[in-house]
Design a protein around this nucleic acid. Sequence first.
DNA 1: TTATTTTGAGTGAAATTGATTGATTTTGAT
DNA 2: ATCAAAATCAATCAATTTCACTCAAAATAA
Lengths: 253, 253
Amino acid sequence: MLFQHRKEKILNLLSESNTVRIHDLVTRTGASESTIRRDLMALEEEGLLTRVHGGATKVKNIGIEQKMSQKESINHEIKAKIAKYCSTLVKPNSQIYIDAGTATLELVRVLPNDKRIQVVTNGVDQALLALQRGINVTLLGGPVKQNTHAIAGITAYQQLERMNFSFAFIGMNGLSYENGLTTTNLDEAMIKECAMQQSHKIRILMDNSKIDQIYEFKVNAPTQAIILLNKQAKVNSPDTIHKLANHFDLHFL
Amino acid sequence: MLFQHRKEKILNLLSESNTVRIHDLVTRTGASESTIRRDLMALEEEGLLTRVHGGATKVKNIGIEQKMSQKESINHEIKAKIAKYCSTLVKPNSQIYIDAGTATLELVRVLPNDKRIQVVTNGVDQALLALQRGINVTLLGGPVKQNTHAIAGITAYQQLERMNFSFAFIGMNGLSYENGLTTTNLDEAMIKECAMQQSHKIRILMDNSKIDQIYEFKVNAPTQAIILLNKQAKVNSPDTIHKLANHFDLHFL
DNA sequence: TTATTTTGAGTGAAATTGATTGATTTTGAT
DNA sequence: ATCAAAATCAATCAATTTCACTCAAAATAA
């Protein structure tokens, strides 16, 4: 596994749970302890995490500075760009599904402030932001996951089955040629699949940091799904992208 | 368990009750007494707590109330007191329902930080705060109300009907002799009733400012419901309280 | 090919941990 | 108030884990 990929995996894991342990990263990446140690040192040098004995934690921001760092988070601009594009797809008088996750949160931030749009989401953060922006929102019901603040489970699933959407905007953790779309959690994987099945059009929000990343659970996307990526992905991983293009409908921004 | 984890846990526990005991921390974290002792020393060094014989207490800040106006501060104190009392009623391994609203939000703030407690709520704010405090939470599904951030509707209702709780903590807008318990919204009123019906024990969180207030929709409480009020209510509205006592189980704090 | 970078393994140093000791403080009964 | 028992504390030590560093092998680039 390349340094770039390990680095992205580490940061992705860290964004989902406040701390990562070195031993866990060793088993997850298959790299040696020395290598992981070096990676963590490099990432700390970049100011992207704080090393602690036994692993690493998120950098803790003080008060008002928090917003700043959120913007400085490596992929924020990419996510914002993709979110902006998605927001142009949303028409008034439509019911749309927005998945939990950081990329889709950006979408809520820039969504047209229109009372006629009906947003359905399984993300508590998404719901709150939509409320603050005065957008109508419906939450799925069920247990809330600690790390991702996503709602998943049988109740949410059954609730989704009765709905249908003109658009679904889905987040995803990994995309690779071998395993396709993957994510970290079975419940959430099922919710993603179900939401996509109920949707007329589908956009999966990703970026180059997710390419060649493989997580535990596969997610099958319907044929009408379009995967959104930034152009940099084509530059960074041309081979993977080329192979993926045979099986997925990729769209570059 | 990483030092970071223990540190967060200790501070979390401290935020919900003014003091923590070393022995309690030992059992909760699974670490040895020596380790906990060292943690407390480190945290004291950081100025995050003060050690006392047998455990540690919060470091007292000067003028914490500065920001709030006097009226807000008093109102907040009443709610905090009632919330604190409610938190003592919650036992581990229990499933409890917490209604949306400001009074119940205080309850979430001081709820024991125990993974074995299952919180079910229809309040988005409640859910988020519980998540931040590391408490397991399940959200009801459905449309979210703009002003109250409460989830209500047929989906939430049906979801509730399948559940049962050892305790329900309900917020309410008004209490009067003529109309009993009243609130501002039909959907929310129905959710409150349904939640109460599914609960073994019920506490309705109120204060003197709600007495003699009448809103549009009546809420019928089961006989086992106990209404919590501050003692000031008895002083301010002795007649109303006296008459109410014939029909409701009032409890003064 | 050679030069450069990246990686994995090994080493001893450093940090963390849990147990033990005896001193100190608190508690409760007289 | 006084004393003994219990609880809590600080200090130390050995075992374990984690760390930083070095060096050779492997991968990559020139």
